[in-house]
Amino acid sequence: MLFAELCYQIFEESTSCYHQKDCVDAEMVNPYEYKSIEYYLFLKNWIDAIQWHLEDMIRELDIEPVKALEIKRRIDQLNQRRTDLVELLDGYFWNKYKDVKTLSSATVNTESPAWAIDRLSILCLKIYHMSQETQRGEVTQVHVKACEDKLSVLLEQKRDLIRAIDQLLDDIETGHKYMKVYKQMKMYNDPELNPVLYRKGQEL
């Protein structure tokens, strides 16, 4: 099994496990060895699933402002964890391919392998939820058909993305592409870089 297919298989497993409880506060039971690449892939999708459902909750029309702020801050925290995990996964690929001799004609990709895998995790959740929409009994057939059409596109996107990720990894392994990893440097989370936060600190 190629790596991207393995990723998707683990993402499906995580998505299924999450929806057995379907609760943003549910405790994750990760079946993989701690700190293994499979463990981090499962964790990655679990975090994405929680964030997906928090994004749904915060859009409730009559949500109380205090509750909305609580959810928004939790989403921000998850975003940071998601970024940290992506960078950890890129570290895995960096170490794996650090001794590969790149060809003089080698080029850099527009995104790193882990950020492409991040998109695959989100795509897995989209496919799950769109599939659920096709099975709703209380909606019109027009709605079901529209969702079936969207699901078909998502499944095609899944196939293309899996193929593209595995091609990218093969190109890096054979020296046709090389990795460059940039830290995301999210400024709004940093009290020394977010002007709203550091100005507040200066006033105290």
Rank of each mutant, 00 (worst) to 15 (best):
Y198W: 08
Q184C: 02
A68S: 11
Y178L: 06
E148G: 01
D99E: 11
G175D: 03
Q202C: 07
M28W: 02
M185N: 15
Y32F: 14
W115K: 10
Y40H: 09
L2V: 08
E173K: 07
G91N: 10
K101A: 03
Y39E: 05
L123R: 02
L6I: 13
T102W: 02
R136W: 01
D166A: 00
K145C: 07
F11P: 00
D149V: 15
R74W: 02
Y39L: 03
N79Q: 12
L204T: 12
I58H: 03
H53W: 02
Q141R: 11
A146S: 10
L2H: 07
D62W: 08
L120W: 09
F11K: 01
S131R: 07
E12A: 03
I165A: 01
Y40P: 00
V142I: 06
H143Q: 09
R82N: 12
L2E: 13
Y178H: 10
I162K: 14
L168N: 10
Q202N: 11
L197Q: 12
A4M: 04
I127L: 03
L161Y: 09
V181D: 00
E13K: 02
L155S: 08
E60I: 04
E138S: 05
I10K: 03
E12D: 09
W94D: 11
M1H: 14
S121Y: 15
V66R: 01
D170A: 09
R73C: 06
N194Y: 06
Q141L: 15
E203M: 15
K67E: 10
I50D: 00
L154T: 07
N194I: 03
A164L: 06
L197T: 06
A26W: 01
H143A: 13
L155Y: 10
C23V: 03
I71V: 12
L78T: 09
V86R: 14
E60F: 09
V86D: 15
N189Q: 11
I50S: 00
Y40E: 09
A146N: 13
V153R: 12
I71T: 08
F11E: 00
Q135H: 08
D22S: 14
K72L: 11
E70K: 07
E203R: 15
W94S: 09
Q135E: 13
M1A: 11
E5I: 07
I117T: 01
A68W: 04
D84L: 08
M28K: 03
L155D: 12
I47N: 04
D62K: 07
T110D: 08
I58A: 00
A106N: 02
I47T: 06
K186W: 15
L78A: 02
K150E: 15
H176W: 01
F42G: 00
D76N: 13
L125S: 04
K98S: 08
C23P: 00
L89N: 07
T83S: 12
W52E: 14
D76S: 15
I75A: 07
A116M: 11
Q202W: 08
Y182C: 12
S36N: 05
Y182G: 05
E70M: 04
A4G: 08
L154E: 00
Y8H: 10
A164H: 06
N45D: 06
